[in-house]
């Protein structure tokens, strides 16, 4: 990881959004109830906002944070997380974003209610799942990622699921009402790049989800507690969440794999730019080869895989040889 960041710095690469469109980030942290939850929610919210403005290179005017206690910040949306403020924030997103953009909404807090009346506790009246659905409908044409990192959040999923949306809930249903570990670990995995399973410097929503599920399960196992939260993800719009998106035979996971957070390296040095492009092409070839794996003889697959991987490694070596840095 250190090597990767060093390379980026030395190359002086211009950040590139993970998707073709722009990324917009709205973080909402709800009522905490006690100091420990306040700290958890705030830490997660702060990390997401800082990552957005920092390594994700999202311009501040496209980043907002509505919180239990307003946390004013120059240049970006901030305020108390009231229903009115949320209404206003979503309406603003509807006008500042454009079709093709990615809108990421992170709701962090305590959940309650069930079905369409599911809610996250906010200062003042709580919006219901239906309200959130109405607000998301303002974002037609955008790729929407909505993460509901709250207890009892499972029933949000069928209400919010639509094609073009990635909906994540910390729990399987509204009956999983105990304190949830999901939000804090999701934010950590996303921001720290620990969730970057393929080490490409970007964290996809799918990677972050899989990382979080694993980490939450291990935390319960470590503490010897029975799991009281089972996260789910829907991105095919059918309203039926999956606990294991991205696995063979599972409909969910395709869109979540494509939506990523982070910045790809690029260079103004034409030699480096060519090498980066070649490397990206070879990475695509590896991906294509993996898809053909089942139909290939193991030895032939391994031979071809190694040829491609060596070619990628050599490109990286050549990039470094241009003076971009030394291998980690």
């Amino acid at each position: 990881m250190i090597g990767r960041l060093a390379l980026l710095v030395v190359l002086g690469v211009a950040p590139m959004p993970a998707q073709d469109g722009d990324l917009h980030v709205l973080v909402v942290t709800g009522l905490s109830g006690e100091a420990s939850f306040a700290a958890t929610f705030t830490t997660a919210g702060e990390a997401l906002v800082e990552a957005a403005i920092g390594p994700w290179r999202v311009s501040p005017e496209r980043v907002g944070w509505l919180a239990e206690t307003a946390r004013p910040a120059p240049g970006r949306l901030a305020g108390r997380a009231t229903k009115v403020a949320l209404d206003s924030a979503f309406r603003r997103l509807g006008t500042t974003s454009k079709p093709g953009d990615v809108v990421a909404v992170f709701l962090i807090g305590h959940g309650s209610g069930q079905g369409t009346a599911s809610r996250i506790s906010l200062p003042g009246p709580d919006p219901t799942a239906v309200d959130y659905g109405r607000w998301l409908d303002l974002l037609a044409g955008r790729t929407v990622v909505i993460v509901i990192g709250a207890s009892a959040s499972g029933d949000f999923l069928p209400v919010l699921a639509r094609p073009g949306r990635v909906v994540l809930t910390a729990t399987r249903s509204s009956s999983e009402g105990n304190e949830s570990l999901f939000a804090a670990r999701f934010a950590h995995g996303l921001v720290s790049l620990e969730a970057d399973a393929d080490k490409d410097g970007l964290v996809s929503v799918l990677e972050a989800f899989q990382y979080t599920v694993r980490e939450v399960a291990m935390a319960y196992e470590r503490d010897g507690r029975l799991m009281t939260e089972h996260a789910q993800l829907d991105d095919d719009g059918d309203g039926r969440g999956s606990a294991e998106p991205g696995r063979d035979g599972v409909g969910d996971g395709r869109l979540a794999r494509r939506v990523t957070f982070g910045a790809r390296p690029s260079s103004t040095d034409p030699r480096v730019a060519v090498l980066l492009a070649e490397r990206q092409e070879l990475e695509g070839a590896v991906e294509a080869l993996r898809r053909r794996k089942e139909g290939m003889r193991a030895a032939a697959y391994l031979e071809e895989l190694e040829r491609l991987l060596v070619a990628i490694a050599e490109r990286t070596e050549q990039i470094r040889a241009t003076g971009a840095g030394s291998p980690p």
Binding site: K199, D200, G201, I312, A313, T316
Partner: peptide, 28 residues
């Protein structure tokens, strides 16, 4: 390393180690 890079082809540390292993002159 092949297993690692199959999943994470862009992982530069593993790439470097793969080249090192190859140059040490073996085949898997």
């Amino acid at each position: 390393l092949l297993g690692v890079l199959e999943q994470a082809p862009g992982y530069e540390r593993a790439q470097g180690l793969l080249l090192k292993a190859r140059r040490a002159g073996t085949t898997p």
